[in-house]
């Protein structure tokens, strides 16, 4: 994900802003390929996997049909 996406993303639970932690960047320095998005209010953590932020609320994260 582009770091500028942070301006648009919010915690799905309480709509507060997210902070990027443990970020690893692609070689061009533009794309965040892994890291964690942390809610500045409730502290819930959302992973960035293969460059794609997973902003599902925690109770939906494990829901994986066959």
């Amino acid at each position: 994900m582009k770091e500028s996406l942070l301006e648009i993303l919010r915690c799905p639970l309480d709509k507060h802003e997210l902070e990027l932690e443990d970020a690893e960047y692609a070689d061009d320095g533009e794309e965040v390929v892994s890291g964690v998005l942390v809610c500045s209010e409730c502290g819930e953590r959302y992973p960035i996997e293969d460059g794609i932020p997973n902003l599902l609320p925690p109770d939906m994260r494990e829901e994986t049909p066959a």
């Binding site: 648009i8 919010r10 902003l55 599902l56």
Partner: peptide
């Protein structure tokens, strides 16, 4: 919602986010 779908969208060069409807987006 679907991890396979956001993977395909990202491969197509799009800014992809795994989300339930509009829940993780700013007002």
């Amino acid at each position: 919602l679907n991890p396979h779908a956001v993977g395909q969208a990202a491969d197509a060069g799009l800014e992809a986010v795994r989300a339930d409807l509009v829940s993780p987006f700013a007002d």
